[in-house]
Design a protein around this nucleic acid. Structure first.
Length: 409
RNA sequence: CUGGGUGUGGCGCAGUUGGUAGCGCGCAGCGUUCGGGACGCUGAGGCCGCGAGUUCGAGUCUCGCCACUCAGACCA
């Protein structure tokens, strides 16, 4: 990407209204724009970062046999009426609207009902099972208060996966696989060292669900953990019965703030029963499909990564998800020429700062944008046939020979 | 939803006792600069959140609404 050609700009300041570090930096660096409370647009850099996160999730889910689909945001009330969740008393975050012709419809806050309904058409025999389907979808939730930048918004990107199995055993096996995939995902996203599987409320249909909680001061959740962090539980399930279940004592638990970056849920027959999702088993018996669901808030994860890594100069992206790997600056006539040559070898991986600005501003922007490596080519470095490469994370610089810099993917 | 704060050029802000709307950044032009957000000159850009009211006159006073924001409550 050539900075002279993109419409994106950086800003030196942002209103004092925006107090969340993630939103402040992402706005200043030109990754996102705030449209209204809890509603953010993604600009070229932000979108690219989001897609990188999405791809990591996609790869890991595909590895465990999941299929990607894309359901609709507009919702027919019918299946929701069957599960009882169309009623705003039960689901108070609905955005509901009307068809011009008169009927009601809603903007999906989640997708259990529509996918269960969809599967009725494709599941009729045990031979059709198991099915593991997921999507990346915009969810709409009419939160009373949006806050913490992109950590809690009214419109957000979520990966939601649903499992359909013939029995509990198959489900449990998959549940473990999904857990493993989640840990790999968080590792690759750079959150592996501070993200834990956490016991949470299972709602009315199972004793527990699991959340993946990233320990973080700005996290909205409060979690308790034992010394070696083998047991982590959400404050909402902290009671004597649970402590016995998990084999821990209240005194040995520490407390911390955490951000929920994923959850996995055993749904059992919660949705398949009211929606009548059944199959014929081997023995000819009609049985109800066993279900699970597995979510990751993709845009929230992006915010969590910002919160974890950013410093006073700006964003810092792990290499895996950075929108570009190199931020290239040519100084002086010869430096600019060489920089352009280098850029053309792999524009997909490089931001070329070819704007007519002084070097200081370019350095500052490279840091604000959080690009992992800054490469400077100038008369000075060219005198010895080198470039200067600076790592954003550590701030360390070194000179390397021009021919040793491999910008190809 | 309850309680506080804030709405003024693209962004960040100031605006005294009511009297023709300002600053910084950014933007355009010219010149000097050019390895850490340079400088000089010139210039463009405003329904002062919206609606009523008081007044000869309202960014400023009164009332209502809306939005943003912080804290709380809420958040399978």
């Amino acid at each position: 990407m050539k900075l002279s050609k993109t419409f994106v700009k950086t800003f030196r300041e942002v209103g004092k209204d925006e107090t969340a570090k993630n939103a402040e930096l992402l706005i200043r660096a030109g990754y996102i724009n705030k449209e209204m409370a809890g509603v953010y647009s993604y600009l070229p850099l932000g979108l690219k970062t989001l897609k990188n996160i999405e791809n990591i999730i996609r790869e890991e889910l595909n590895k465990i046999g999941c299929e990607e689909i894309n359901l609709t945001a507009l919702q027919n009330p019918e299946p929701w009426e069957k599960s009882g969740r169309w009623n705003s008393d039960k689901m108070d975050i609905w955005f509901k609207t009307e068809l011009a012709s008169g009927g009601e419809l809603g903007l999906a806050p989640t997708h259990e009902e529509p996918i269960t309904n969809l599967m009725k058409k494709y599941i009729s025999s045990y031979k059709d099972l198991p099915i593991y389907a997921y999507q990346f979808q915009t969810k709409f939730r009419n939160e009373l208060r949006a806050k913490s930048g992109i950590l809690r918004t009214r419109e957000f990107l979520m990966k939601d996966l649903y499992s359909f199995t013939a029995d509990e055993e198959t489900h449990n096996e998959f549940y473990e696989k999904a857990t493993g995939a989640y840990f790999k995902i968080y590792d690759r996203l750079g959150l592996g060292d501070c993200t834990y599987k956490c016991f949470a409320s299972g709602g009315v249909f199972s004793k527990y669900s699991h959340e993946f909680q990233t320990f973080l001061p700005v996290g909205e959740d409060t979690v308790y953990y034992n010394k070696d962090k083998t047991v982590v539980l959400n404050e909402e399930v902290l009671n004597d019965e649970v402590l016995v279940d998990l084999g821990v004592k209240r005194e040995e638990l520490e407390k911390t703030n955490a951000a929920e970056v994923g959850n996995i849920f055993t749904l059992k027959y919660k949705f398949s029963e009211p929606l009548d999702l059944t199959f014929n088993d081997k023995d000819g018996e009609r049985k109800t499909v066993y279900m699970g669901c597995y979510g990751i808030g993709v845009s929230r994860v992006m915010g969590v990564i910002v919160e974890k890594y950013a410093d006073e100069k700006g964003l810092i992206w792990p290499e895996n998800i950075a929108p570009f790997k190199y931020y290239l600056i040519g100084i002086g006539e010869e430096g600019e020429k060489k920089a352009l040559e280098l850029y053309e070898k792999n524009p997909e991986n490089i931001i070329l700062d070819d704007r007519d600005l002084r070097p200081g501003q370019k350095f500052a922007d490279s840091e604000l944008m959080g690009i992992p490596y800054r490469v400077v080519i100038s008369d000075k470095t060219l005198a010895e046939g080198s470039v200067e490469i600076t790592e954003r994370k550590t701030g360390e610089s070194k000179m390397i020979k021009l021919e040793d810099l491999k910008v190809e993917a």
